[in-house]
Amino acid sequence: MKEWQPKILAFLCNWCSYAGADLAGVSRIQYPPNIRVIRVPCSGRIDPIFVLKCLENGFDGVLVSGCHPGDCHYISGNYVARRKFAVLKAILEFIGIEPGRVQFSWVSAGEGEKFAQVISKVTEDIKELGPAKRLVKSF
């Protein structure tokens, strides 16, 4: 039987993390093919509801990635986002969602390799956790 492949949704900000993902590709750095990317202008665009919907839909994991502190194309979008993410992550783990399911990263436009590392790590973490069950809605 084929190895189980988790599906992970990745929200990437246009100016840094999405560019970092492109750079990983341009540099032909290989990483697991498990992410599905939604491009957003800024990590500040991410409403925690998006992440919850991904979990309910059955994604095995969610990654949200933005610009490093100070690099935000929109000055402070990632700072505002960081507070939301901190609360979301704390609450999710508190109710018993496994810590690896929802992860956050800062990846700059120059960090192709870091992007690949982040995706590898997140994918490995989620493979270890197995398919998502908690919060998944059976339609």
Partner: peptide
Amino acid sequence: PAMAAYDAEDKQEFIL
């Protein structure tokens, strides 16, 4: 209010 503000030095130990 906290969620309408930010501090550049907010903790971010949970961010890769």
